[in-house]
Design a protein around this nucleic acid. Structure first.
Length: 612
RNA sequence: CGGGCUGUGGCGCAGUUUGGUAGCGCACCUGCUUUGGGAGCAGGGGGUCCUCGGUUCAAAUCCGAGCAGCCCGACCA
């Protein structure tokens, strides 16, 4: 491709609206342009990269035995009402009506369509198993689109769905996809980590996420420094000893162990419900009682843990942080230690709630009989559910809000003073330095970009939508499903996050829009002829090559070549051409050297093989 | 949705405090020169100053409402 005939609007300056490297660089390199927030056009250079990613995904999916299909982007509301997700998905789904007032949405995902396709056709266990996948644009009305392609309202996703007779079949299909994903990301030149994940709104029994480690990542991940334990902090647990007080706390590590699965293992994690159930049968009779009586102390304007520490000289670890939430319109309260953070995912999973949000300030008085900044679990109204983190049960003489402006309570003993804590369960977010649940080593926290997510769905959708088959005994059984996503456009962005320097993008060879760029410098005809000749020769060798034949100065060409990140640069100028030589530079290493004109093509092919 | 910031030629910004009819750099067009790391000189084109309403002789500037974009939180591939 000749650049004089290409559309590659590069930007010298950094667009003010772009924050992270991939967003800035993809805009500057002329790969993408936004139509509105979170909605992008993929320009020629950008779309070539997208297609590279798609092709790698397609090849590995085909290799795994999956079958490519293309499902409708526009879906009828009926199937979503059947699965129960028309309500559940909420405002994330873009909905509209046709001229006959029939309701539709733009597909944010395709479980319902798959179930619909399959329920009318699959009759017998003999028809199973199989795996269907598609590469398609998904639409989600994200609360806050940001970071360019990283979180867009419209994005390209590969989604696959496995259909099996039973859990064993699902386990095999899941492992098969797991392995395919490992190959996909490796081929894309991405350094990814697999972590145990919460299955969230998808439902189902187990899931893993494929993460690209990057500072700009939106997920926090817990890694053990000793063993291979890795989990999204949404689900990660620490092996914290809970001292004395309650026998219910005896073996905190056990439940976590059961719920964990190593990256290589073919078994799957247990549902989070089981985790909390194991820890929740707390018995108040066993609790010790503190001698000291509760006291109310004046704490003017101390609405945060930090304020309190300054005012009454108690460490955060001795405080009970009380978090007021509304779960499906019901007021609920979560208790965590002052030095811990509430993990909303764990809280939501425990409650089994669909919608969970922090209470608004005015709701503190309306629904909690309290006041923002001074809420506490002692003497809350009867109707409010109180759930405490396990670490609360070992507290004594703790400090908490008095439900009265400018007052806190001290000497609180949770077992004695807090009426009906319905459970002590795992609610805290793990922190760096916490002990690993598997080996006791130290956990570290890193941020990552989620590029792939695989779920064992089970029978949630098939049951709700009547997708059944007849087993060997002629009995109807729900099909067992799995669902597997790769964010194609996000992979491209993540690759830039992981591979760039201060001059621009440094594409891994398999994703590079072109492998080679030829820069003829100066205005000599000999140079132009030599460039043209090499260009043709490389093209005939089947290589993807850009020829920068624009009437631009050397600096412009060098800078653009580096910005767009082409792995191999061939410079042709009268200087080296006098010796019948071309100059080569490898983008990643910056290494440069001359090659002979006569053997240039074969030498370049060899170089490309050496660049991983 | 809550909190913060910002809307001025294609891009990056100044001008807003103290109203007086819009400017800088880059990019673009023409000519000459230049030509190995984002050229120089000369000339030129392009702006409903986010929108609507109000105050005023006069509004980019002051007031009100709305819209859009970005950042921090909940959502997710």
């Amino acid at each position: 491709m000749k650049l004089s005939k290409y559309y590659m609007p590069t930007l010298r300056e950094v667009p003010a609206d772009a924050e992270i490297p991939s967003h800035q660089l993809m805009l500057r390199a002329g790969m993408i342009r936004s139509l509105s927030a979170g909605i992008y056009s993929y320009l020629p250079l950008g779309y070539r990269v997208i297609r590279k990613v798609e092709q790698i995904v397609r090849e590995e999916m085909d290799r795994s035995g999956a079958l490519e299909v293309l499902m409708p982007a526009m879906q009828v509301a009926d199937i979503w009402k059947e699965s129960g997700r028309w309500e559940e998905f909420g405002p994330l789904m873009v909905r509209f009506k046709d001229r006959n007032e029939r309701e539709y949405c733009l597909g944010p995902t395709h479980e319902e369509v798959i179930a619909d396709i399959v329920r009318d056709e699959v009759r017998s266990y003999k028809d199973l198993p199989f795996n269907l996948y598609q590469i398609q644009t998904k639409v989600r009305d994200e609360i806050r689109p940001r970071f360019g392609l990283m979180r867009a309202k419209e994005f390209i996703m590969k989604d696959a769905y496995t259909l099996d007779c039973d859990e064993d079949g699902l386990d095999k299909a899941y492992q098969n996809m797991y392995d395919a994903y490992v190959r996909v990301f490796e081929r894309c030149g991405l350094d990814t980590r697999v972590v145990e994940a919460d299955s969230g709104a998808m439902g189902g029994s187990g899931s893993h996420e494929f993460m690209v480690l990057a500072d700009s990542g939106e997920d926090d991940l817990a890694f053990c420094s000793e063993c291979d334990y890795a989990a999204n902090v949404e689900r990660a647990e620490a092996a914290l000893e809970i001292s004395s007080v309650s026998p219910a706390a005896d073996n905190p590590a056990d439940s976590s162990l059961a719920a964990n699965v190593s990256a290589e293992a073919s078994t799957v994690a247990d549902g989070p419900a089981e985790v909390s159930a194991g820890n929740s049968d707390y018995s108040p009779a066993e609790a010790t009682t503190s001698e000291a009586e509760i006291e109310k102390v004046h704490t003017p304007d101390a609405t945060t843990i930090e304020d309190l520490v300054d005012m009454i000289e108690v460490s955060p670890g001795k405080m009970i942080k009380t978090m007021a939430y509304i779960a499906d319109d019901q007021p609920v309260v979560a208790l965590v230690r002052g030095d811990d953070q509430l993990n909303e995912v764990k809280f939501r999973n425990y409650l089994g709630a669909i919608e969970l949000r922090p209470a608004h300030p005015d709701e503190f008085s309306e629904k909690f009989g309290s006041v923002a900044g001074f809420i506490g679990p002692v003497d809350l109204p009867e109707n409010i559910r109180i759930v405490a983190d396990r670490r609360i049960q070992e507290l004594d003489k703790a400090v908490t809000g008095a439900n009265e402006k400018d007052y806190h309570l001290v000497n609180v003993n949770p077992h004695r003073d807090i009426a009906k804590i319905e459970a002590f369960t795992e609610l805290r977010t793990v922190q760096a330095g916490d002990p690993c649940p598997r080996c006791g080593g130290s956990l570290e926290i890193k941020s990552g970009i989620e590029v792939g997510h695989i779920f064992k769905l089970g029978t949630k959708y098939s049951s709700n939508m009547g997708a059944t088959y007849l087993d060997e005994n002629g009995k109807a059984q729900p099909i067992v499903m799995g669902s597997y996503g790769i964010g194609i456009t996000r992979v491209a962005a993540a690759a830039v996050e992981q591979h760039h320097d201060d001059r621009g993008i440094v594409w891994p060879l398999p994703l590079a829009p072109f492998q080679i760029i030829i820069l003829p410098l100066g205005n000599s005809d000999e140079v132009d002829w030599a460039a043209e000749e090499l260009y043709k020769e490389l093209q005939e060798a089947g290589l993807e090559v850009l020829l920068d034949d624009r009437d631009e100065r050397a600096g412009v060409k060098f800078n653009d070549a580096e910005l767009i990140g082409i792995p191999l640069r061939i410079t042709i100028g009268s200087r080296s051409l006098e010796n019948d030589e071309f100059e080569v530079q490898i983008r990643r290493t910056g290494k440069d050297f001359n090659i002979d004109r006569s053997s240039a093509c074969s030498k370049i092919e060899k170089l490309l093989e050496e660049i991983e």
